[in-house]
Design a protein around this nucleic acid. Structure first.
Length: 552
RNA sequence: GCGCCCAUAGCUCAGUCGGAUAGAGCAACUGCCUUCUAAGCAGUGGGUCGCAGGUUCGAGUCCUGCUGGGCGCGCCA
């Protein structure tokens, strides 16, 4: 409904603009209708007249008047008002709002979804933590941002793949294997110290104990670290995926770094870069000429010991993503990997890949405020706050909501005490309460013999009161928020919208009796409105993968 | 030194990507349950949108320069 109406109005706008400016080419796309911020200014507004003022050398209000007739003729428009310096404000016809209500009740969970990107494929890569330990708070933010973004993209028509890239090769994995090996030997009383910079966490002992119970002492004479790495990585990947599942994050695919080595993709990438003259050899290492693309120094692709650096398989991985034919590639990772991004992009540019298809979402750091105390978290320091602990203490709903609520770009202070509260102070419960309250009203309605009319027959004039009208208008805007959130990769637009809607609903509930024994016609009409609000709340929470309980 | 991000109410943050009188929640204060859930509602106080310029009809939003904070800048990942 929203896009249908706004597209129609924008077309009228564009046509009128082209008749007004037949000589001068004018970008009509820059003049569109948007929702008003202040309801006293009508429902939709455009600044077209003011933008055109310079080109036409006329007073904006005078220009606005030239649009008025055409717009008034639209069946979707009740009234056109010219206000302020030259805004064209539109009040939508009641039919539009009633049709919105009907389509919500008809489309149900599909309301708000669109087909703007139907037929397009998107890959969202996120979390991608190495299997060297359990996930911590920093990963949770990436997990929520990535998963919610994926869900938003799906809501606007993309066929989405969620992928987890993990480094099961390299020095860190060797360290993991050797740490487990040491703990394993200790279990048999062998004096075997942890390697320098080895992993000290208790989970290493846990993994070693698991190995002992499944393999006995059969690995005691094993000198190589690889079997230990393989086993530990396997265990840790399972733990990671279990934790993520508890956060309601499910991946469609994992992609192993080692597979890029064994398949020859890394070697092929290096060869192709060399053929393009983008690399050279010096001091026994192979360098990428990133300085040709604005870097301050060239970067090493292959170390003098013959081992590739981290960036090399990452380049091969991204080439693989391009080869798989996605229309959109989204990468969610910590902002501390920023310099890495430029190197990958440089290589992709050398290969001639279209960087417009690649979108990095670099989320900033999270710190936790708990009982007034600020706990800073970083990968290097020992982590006492893991994903599992968060979900245990706060639940998936609260954990997800708190991260989705904020822009990924800004550093975030996670208010643990607020998140912990199961009260009205906590926005999650505030939203869920809308849903529960509406469900409770439905029960009451059924008791009183009020049911949804399949033919949508109810007295629509009752919903044209100003309070009801504003609620309908809010529901009308919902698809635009979904669309904006997806296109701009801004998850927080959804919580912002839902909190607005919740506020309006609770206010309405307080001010207006919905189910009134003395007013059956009014009760029926308002009941339909409540059901529509409940549906949108459920859909919005669904995008965030937050539960909408029927009872609280 | 260079790069990226941030700076909005006492605190945590929004601000629909240049619009009209800058918002919400928390905290503080005052009211409202015999009713469809008070996990709620209504109201009060609280601001030089870090600073200084610039762009234009119009700037919290865009540009430049500062200040302050975070992160990065490795033949680590």
């Amino acid at each position: 409904m929203y896009f249908e109406i706004v597209d129609h109005l924008n077309t009228v706008l564009a046509e009128t603009i082209s008749t007004l400016t037949p000589e001068t080419p004018f970008d009509a796309a820059s003049c569109t209708f948007v929702a008003t911020k202040d309801t006293t200014h009508g429902d939709l507004t455009t600044n077209a007249a003011m933008v055109l003022a310079k080109t036409l050398k006329k007073n904006p209000r005078e220009i606005a008047a030239m649009f008025q007739e055409k717009l008034t003729a639209s069946p979707h428009v009740e009234k056109v008002m010219i206000a302020g310096p030259g805004f064209i404000n539109i009040r939508l016809s009641g039919t539009v709002l009633i049709d919105t209500l009907k389509s919500i009740l008809k489309e149900k969970e599909h309301y708000g979804r669109s087909f703007r990107f139907s037929g397009k494929k998107a890959l969202v890569e996120f979390v991608s933590a190495n299997p060297t330990g359990p996930l911590h708070v920093g990963h949770v933010r990436g997990a929520v941002v990535g998963d919610t973004t994926a869900e938003l993209l799906r809501a606007v028509g993309y066929e989405v793949t969620r992928e987890y890239y993990y480094n099961d090769a390299g020095v860190q994995m060797q360290m993991l294997g050797r740490s487990v090996q040491a703990r394993y030997r200790q279990l048999f009383g062998v004096d075997s110290p942890l390697p320098e910079n080895g992993y000290k966490g208790d989970y290493i002992r846990y993994i070693a104990a698991g190995l002992k119970s499944s393999r006995g002492d059969s690995l005691l004479r094993e000198e190589k670290w690889e079997p230990f790495t393989e086993y530990a990585a396997d265990v840790l990947m399972n733990i990671i995926m279990d934790d993520l599942r508890r956060l309601r994050v499910l991946f469609d695919a994992t992609f192993s770094e080692r597979s890029l080595h064994t398949s020859g993709a890394v070697a092929r990438t290096l060869k192709q870069l060399a053929e393009k003259g983008a690399t050279y050899e010096q001091d026994g290492a192979i360098w990428l000429r990133t300085t040709d693309h604005g870097d301050e120094k060239d970067r090493v692709l292959v170390k003098s010991d013959g081992e590739p650096t981290y960036v090399t398989p990452d380049i091969a991985y991204h080439c693989d993503k391009y080869d798989r034919g996605f229309d959109l590639l989204v990468n969610v990772m910590g902002h501390d990997h920023h310099s890495q991004v430029e190197r990958v992009k440089t290589a992709l540019r050398i290969f001639g890949h279209n960087l417009d298809r690649l979108q990095y979402l670099l989320n900033q750091m999270v710190s936790i405020q708990r009982e007034g105390e600020k706990v800073k978290l970083s990968t290097r320091e020992g982590q006492f706050m893991t994903l599992a602990e968060m979900v245990d203490e706060l639940g998936a709903d609260v954990t997800r909501y708190f991260f989705a609520q904020r822009s990924y770009k800004a550093q975030m202070i996670f208010d643990w005490d607020l998140a912990k509260k199961q009260s009205m102070d906590n926005p999650v419960y505030y939203l869920q309460y809308v849903h529960a309250r509406a469900c409770s009203m439905e029960e009451k309605a059924i008791e009183r013999g009020i049911g949804v009319s399949p033919a949508m027959e109810f007295d629509t004039s009752i919903l044209m009161g100003e309070k009801e009208r504003l609620l309908l208008l809010k529901l009308f805007y919902y698809p635009s928020f979904v669309s904006d959130a997806a296109e701009r990769f801004e998850t927080q637009l959804i919580p912002t919208y839902l909190e607005d809607l919740a506020k309006m609903f609770h206010t309405y509930y307080q001010a207006q009796r919905v189910l009134d024994q003395d007013d059956p016609a009014g009760s029926l009409a308002r009941f339909h409105l409540v059901l529509a609000i409940r549906q949108v709340m459920r859909n919005g929470l669904g995008l965030l993968r937050v539960n909408a309980p029927e009872r609280m």
